[in-house]
Simulated assay, not measured.
Amino acid sequence: MKPYIIPKLILSFLLICSFSRTFAQTTDAVKISGVLTKPYTLTSADLAKMPRVKVSRKDGDSTNYEYSGVLLSTVLAKGGVTLGKDLRRENLTKYVIIEAIDGYQVVFSLAELDADFTDEKIILADTVDNEPLLSTEGPFRIIVENDKRAARCIKQVTSIKIEFAK
């Protein structure tokens, strides 16, 4: 075997891995799954057709930004999640796990998202200041309107899953 073949194979492998990761980051869909009656995949086109909400929040640089998207409860309601008058008893033990492309996860109780329990706005955003989110933030990002820290404002959301606490 010629000595230059192995470095070319390694370079080819690295290029393929890099391309795969780049492709995954540009995917404009979020998998909605778990304890739902109608699990589905939400695309950018689907989100654009849903009722929009605007939320202002300061980010790490202390600049106020205006995000636009859809209430997370609305996204979940499309999948048939338990909300409103049915969110009681054992249904109050449900929680939502949101995951980003890099594996980062945040958790919300289902009651934190329900308008019958709170006026807090938690949205799945796709724009900031009337522009699409940057690729380093989107295409989807969770924005929590009044959290003091932005730790739950998860970027590059790829999945939203509803589970029961054990």
Rank of each mutant, 00 (worst) to 15 (best):
E120S: 12
K49N: 14
P132D: 04
V107Y: 08
A115M: 11
V128E: 03
P139K: 08
K54P: 00
D147Q: 05
L11A: 14
G84V: 02
E120N: 13
R88S: 09
Y95Q: 02
A115R: 13
S33T: 15
E66G: 00
T27N: 11
A24F: 09
V96N: 09
F23H: 06
A111H: 04
R141D: 01
I97R: 15
K8F: 14
L92R: 12
V128R: 13
T22G: 04
T26I: 05
L110R: 05
D46E: 07
P132Y: 05
E112K: 11
I6T: 15
S109Y: 14
R149F: 14
K85A: 15
D28E: 15
Y95W: 09
A45F: 06
L83R: 03
N64G: 00
P51N: 03
L47K: 06
K54N: 15
I97D: 14
L15C: 12
T63A: 07
Y104G: 00
R152F: 10
A125D: 06
G103Q: 04
V30C: 04
P51M: 03
V81C: 06
A24N: 09
G69E: 03
G79E: 06
G84Y: 03
G60S: 07
A29Y: 14
V30I: 15
Y95D: 04
L133T: 05
A150I: 14
Q105L: 08
A151I: 12
V107F: 07
D119K: 15
R21S: 09
V81H: 01
L15D: 02
L87W: 03
F23E: 13
S68G: 00
K155M: 06
F117N: 11
T41K: 14
L71N: 10
C153G: 13
E163C: 09
S159T: 11
S18Y: 09
L113C: 08
V106C: 08
I5W: 10
V75M: 04
P39Q: 10
P7C: 02
L110A: 09
L92T: 15
I142D: 08
V55A: 03
S18M: 11
L72E: 03
L36G: 01
I143S: 04
L124T: 12
K38G: 00
I6L: 15
E66D: 03
V157T: 06
V53T: 15
K31G: 00
Y95A: 07
V81E: 11
L42G: 01
I6S: 08
F140S: 07
P132M: 04
A125R: 06
